[in-house]
Nucleic acid binder design. Structure first.
Lengths: 331, 331
DNA sequence: CTGAAAGCGCTTACAG
DNA sequence: CTGAAAGCGCTTACAG
């Protein structure tokens, strides 16, 4: 495979001149440039990414650190990954996948091996140990998720608090005074899941303001458990006939349970929820809902990381992506 | 950040000796080795992956070429990606994500830029243009999917033909003489989807042998369409009361339709299907089924690619991963 | 506007 | 068993 020297020889110029047209950093006369471009085409030359990386100390690749939790059921993960990769490519960056069970070790290794110019951490928790090696080293990174303490690292996520407020408002505006809050299992909050906590807090705060009573229904993991829990909650006549759902598994299972019990929405039951577009695409879900926005979040993350790489000492940013309410006749 | 020269100085040896302990390719006396290891620890040295890649012409990274088709609904994609990355890491390889809409271009660029030592192509079609640059260049690669003509490239996939045969046998053994074959939309077969075609052919062939009549029900894309199509098919009394399903979207939607029509499995309807473990995890699906095996397929793909990299001229392999039948009381 | 030289951080024959 | 030297394929001051 041709190298820069072959091109230089073919074009009758020096290697540095070829490099100048490759990088575009220096003026090269149109004639010379044309000769070089011909030579490149003729030899099917293509710059060796690794050699360039060594010379510039820029790998032009970002690492994406995935925390893959079987239990946490995330059909949106693939969407995030593809969106991140597409957005990165648009900025000239490749994307490397870091999936080790020990995420902290993955982060350390990526930094130490200079394999990437920056890191994107998916699904960040409160107290996430993956932040340690980053805040120690000051390595460029952005968190997807919004921990209580981002430790001086850029962070971006959907505005789950705003989403909760929107849904509560929607219920209140339709005259509801109480609702079951179908939420994640306790373990998820305990583990530090920031989206679960942000949604929950905002939901209660806004419900207080609007005089809406919230009855919490934690839904355990696993399809059978989800079904049983929902069925029990809906079968109990003491419970409100209105549902505020933040739990994808529950959203997916709900139609089964409605049919189990012979219930109709909105005749027998009112429903609003926050769920992923993946679910909305799989089913005909006719609930008023806030959809999560993986593509927008991914694009913002890449943009922030590019800025951070360019300006390592700038102040850390937080960015919340505004959700949008999809109104359907479910309340 | 320390480099190999710093380590050599600290340990009082030459850079080549440090390199010897790094690569493990040469004997180094225990004393010298110990001194070097101390120096490495003290300086927190870590080899620069890019520099090593330049020196060895081995990047130790594989590229994974994703064909992301909104329509094709693949909740298993994330599982594949994580499994591939994990398996690669185990062999010392990193994984780079290639998601460009123009997959052929992505392949060309990855090869030309020497960014990867090998390529894994996901979701390969018959006549897939991404094979062109690979078979032209002889670049190490493995296909996930089993095209009619793999063009001399290694390929691996679930054995969809065997899966079809198993399910047909299961029906026949339970005395069924006819079944609706709920399958993918025509476009998918036309586009060259190899798994769809392999399953279909084997299903018909085996059904012939076993004297089972198959009534095809192509299911279009989109939740509303899936639901309507299934409902119409099940409502038609002329259709068999037995279902052979190869379509994840239909599997996911089926319970809704059963409830729409007030049908029960197996009382009113017999069902067998091939579907992904992702679906099985989301719902309480109580159909006898063959589950796809993304993790096993991914592991095999990585293993084959490692072999290919080591032995570029060896004969191309085809590998089919045996499916396993999960018996449940649905027939 | 163009080129010669040094350097990025490794590995690998080769010599001793 | 260890080291000096060349080389991998680029880029980037620097000189002209």
């Amino acid at each position: 495979m041709a190298n820069i020297g072959d091109v230089a020889r073919e074009a009758g110029v020096s290697r540095s001149t070829v490099s100048s047209v490759l990088t575009g950093r220096k003026y090269v006369s149109p004639q010379t440039r044309a000769r070089i471009e011909d030579a490149i085409a003729k030899l099917e030359y293509s710059v060796n990414t690794g050699a360039r990386a060594l010379a510039t100390s820029k790998t032009m690749t970002f690492g994406v650190v995935v925390r893959f939790h079987e239990a946490e059921f995330s059909p949106a993960l693939a969407t995030y990954l593809v969106a991140l990769s597409d957005a990165a490519r648009e900025q000239g960056y490749a994307v490397m996948l870091l999936t080790e069970a020990d995420g902290t070790e993955a982060v350390r290794r990526a930094i130490a091996g200079r394999q990437v110019d920056g890191l994107i951490l998916l699904n960040v928790l409160d107290g996430d140990p993956r932040l340690d090696p980053i805040s120690e080293s000051g390595f460029p990174a952005v968190l997807v998720g919004m921990p209580e303490d981002p430790r001086g690292i850029d962070a971006v996520d959907l505005d789950f608090a705003a989403a909760a407020a929107m849904l509560v408002d929607h219920l209140a505006e339709h005259g509801h005074r109480e609702a079951m809050f179908v939420r994640w299992p306790d373990e998820l909050y305990a583990a530090g899941s920031t989206y679960a906590t942000r949604f929950e807090r905002a939901a209660y705060a806004r419900a207080d303001e609007r005089g809406l009573r919230l009855v919490p229904v934690p839904v355990p993991v696993g399809p059978a458990q989800v079904r049983a829990t929902l069925r029990a909650a809906l079968a109990d006549p003491a419970n409100p006939r209105t549902l505020l759902i933040h739990n994808d598994a529950a959203v997916a299972m709900l139609p089964f349970v409605l049919n189990d019990l012979g219930l109709e929405v909105p005749a027998d039951l009112r429903v609003v929820s926050l769920h992923s577009a993946e679910l909305a695409g799989l089913y005909v879900l006719s609930f008023t809902a806030v959809e999560s926005k993986p593509t927008a979040v991914a694009a913002a993350a890449v943009e922030m990381l590019c800025k951070r790489v360019a300006e390592p000492r700038a102040e850390a940013q937080k960015r919340l992506i505004a959700p949008r309410l999809e109104r359907k006749a479910s309340v």
